[in-house]
């Protein structure tokens, strides 16, 4: 394509948009709405992943050590635990430290006042890399000599991964459906522009314009619509996100939920919206153009 045609293409693309002003407006609005929801779900999944990751790190596995071992021997067990693949962190606690924590937790509770350090075991507090693999890792822990008992909460670990999986699948379905919706409306807008100009297209064919040349302005039109929708959706998403994060922070005084600032999501979000806009715009126009050109192909 020669340089002097780029101006022509842009002009024709824009003309196509204004020729059906209302339809283009509707297409952009629907695209914005769809992409906004698509973006929101991506951000939600992203934040939940981070949250789950963080909660995972508080979900600890406790490995109790044979009381017959000395502190030095028990620390060797800790070293071996640290060498396991899925272990993120392994922290050694003597029975005295455990007692202190125990007492602190049950302060003023007379039932436990008689508990002595000797009643407790040395232990290693293990944080896992991936809690989904907890069962496997616990098996490996049992195989280490000196580990006599383990407590771990599978239910919690599984709960997190289930939540994550459900959310991921749900968002993928929603994203796919909404992308399809905006694709269809852009496709329809471009189709209307083409039917409007079928006489012009017939003349172009008659004088020997290539199919590629005839199609391109409509692809440009779809591209512009998609990009306009993506740009607006991106801006709105940013505002909406900042607003919601501020509101949640106000309500959530315990800081249970922490959200990544939007600025940190800038690059992935620009890519997501850009790709989505490109996809619905170009693929949307291309499908209707193919149909049209084949229908009137001679």
């Amino acid at each position: 394509m020669k340089i002097n045609n780029i101006g022509y293409l842009l002009k024709e693309g824009v003309r196509g948009i204004f020729l059906h002003g209302f339809m283009s407006f509707a297409a952009v609005v629907v695209t914005v709405a769809c992409l906004l929801i698509v973006g929101s779900f991506s951000i939600l999944v992203y934040n939940v992943n981070i949250l789950v990751d963080r909660l995972d790190k508080t979900n600890e596995v406790m490995a109790y050590i044979d009381e017959g071992l000395s502190v030095a021997e028990a620390k060797q067990v800790q070293t071996r635990i640290n060498l396991l693949d899925n272990v993120y962190k392994a922290e050694f606690k003597t029975r005295e430290q455990a007692l202190e924590e125990f007492v602190a937790d049950h302060e003023g509770d007379s039932a436990f006042s008689g508990v002595q350090a000797e009643d407790l075991r040395h232990r290693v507090v293990v944080t896992l890399e991936d809690n989904a693999l907890m069962e496997q890792t616990v098996k490996e822990l049992y195989e280490i000599e000196g580990v006599v008992n383990i407590t771990a909460s599978y239910a919690l670990a599984e709960g997190f991964s289930t939540l994550q999986n459900v959310l991921q699948i749900a968002s993928m379905v929603i994203i796919a459906v909404l992308l399809l919706v905006s694709l269809l409306i852009i496709s329809n807008t471009v189709k209307m522009a083409m039917y409007d100009r079928k006489d012009e297209i017939a003349i172009m064919k008659m004088v020997g314009a290539t199919n590629g040349f005839i199609r391109l302005p409509f692809v440009v039109q779809g591209f512009l619509l998609g990009m306009l929708g993506a740009g607006l959706a991106f801006g709105l998403e940013w505002l909406l996100y900042d607003f919601l994060v501020a509101r949640i922070a106000e309500l959530d005084t315990l800081r249970m939920f922490q959200f990544v600032p939007f600025q940190q999501l800038l690059v992935p979000m620009v890519c997501t919206f850009g790709a989505a806009g490109l996809f619905v715009g170009v693929v949307g126009s291309w499908t209707s153009i193919r149909k049209f050109m084949n229908a009137s192909a001679k």
């Binding site: 006489d199 012009e200 017939a202 003349i203 064919k205 008659m206 004088v207 020997g208 314009a209 290539t210 199919n211 192909a297």
Partner: peptide, 22 residues
């Protein structure tokens, strides 16, 4: 071939009874 047709048409100008102007 389909994609050669435009180049054929550049060698043949066509005029119709109904003008076909824009």
């Amino acid at each position: 071939r389909k994609r050669e047709i435009p180049y054929l048409r550049r060698t043949v100008g066509v005029v119709f009874q109904d003008f076909r102007l824009i």
